[in-house]
């Protein structure tokens, strides 16, 4: 049976269905290859937290005390600039973890995390994680794999943010696919645009917001209206 390993906080719930818990733990990359007995033992150090839509789970800059696994729902991990601009680093889906890096690194939370809907989390406190790493060398190997994948994702995001002129490519796509006077209509999703521009979907959202702030396009419900074709052409590097 899982238990609460410290004084319960608001939203923490004692678990009561062992079969489901072990099945879930088995699906987490952290615990790949663990026996049911090992998972049972690990479960004793895990607590559950239920979070409502919009609730902030972690604040950037606060001491990193726990890492979390998403059991159900989606968690948004993001950073906010001094001007209040938000950059989503990752959407965390069931089976995935967040806040691992600062917990292992011993620092403060690198980003904030918010529940995008009703969310159920499993958490492990830093002190319990240290005991588990000592007791289960296999866990350390699994953690290295998880962190390697995390670094790959972040490097890819850094590459997009630093070197790729996503806005220029998006401008070109918008011009190419804009409906013409012949009545031809084109429909694209942000995912389609991301695939065409060779970037992440998050970057398209960010670029569309930028174009809107610049007054070049207007985002309407299911419509992107090009307000300033000339400026968009300039951004796309297309001559008149």
């Amino acid at each position: 049976m899982f238990c609460l390993c410290a004084a319960p906080e608001r939203g923490d719930i004692i678990l009561d269905n062992m079969a489901v818990e072990v099945e879930f733990l088995k699906s987490i990359p952290y615990f790949a290859g663990f026996s049911p007995a090992e998972l049972d033992s690990i479960g004793k150090r895990i607590f559950e937290k239920v979070v409502a839509r919009g609730e902030i789970i972690l604040f950037e800059g606060e001491p990193a005390r726990e890492l979390y696994f998403v059991v159900s729902g989606v968690v948004k991990v993001f950073k906010t600039s001094a001007e209040g601009k938000e950059q989503i680093l990752q959407l965390i889906r069931p089976g995935e973890s967040f806040n691992d890096v600062p917990v292992f690194g011993g620092g403060s939370n690198l980003a904030s995390a918010e529940a995008m809907g009703p969310v159920v989390l499993y958490g492990i406190r830093k002190s319990d994680l240290e005991i588990m790493l000592r007791d289960y060398p296999r866990l350390a190997q699994n953690v290295i794999q998880v962190l390697s994948q995390r670094i790959e994702h972040l490097v890819s995001l850094v590459e997009d943010l630093s070197f790729r002129h996503v806005t220029g490519r998006l401008a070109k796509i918008l011009l190419e696919y804009a409906g013409d006077k012949s009545g031809e209509r084109h429909w694209l999703t942000q995912q389609d645009m991301a695939a065409m521009a060779g970037t992440a979907r998050e970057m398209i959202g960010r670029s569309l917001k930028f174009l809107e702030e610049e007054g070049v396009v207007r985002l309407e419900r299911h419509r992107i209206v090009i307000k300033d074709k000339k400026a968009l052409k300039e951004m796309a590097g297309m001559a008149d």
Partner: peptide, 10 residues
């Protein structure tokens, strides 16, 4: 799920 945008010129 696909949230489609129509792209139009004002």
């Amino acid at each position: 799920i696909r949230c489609l945008y129509e792209i139009v010129i004002e």
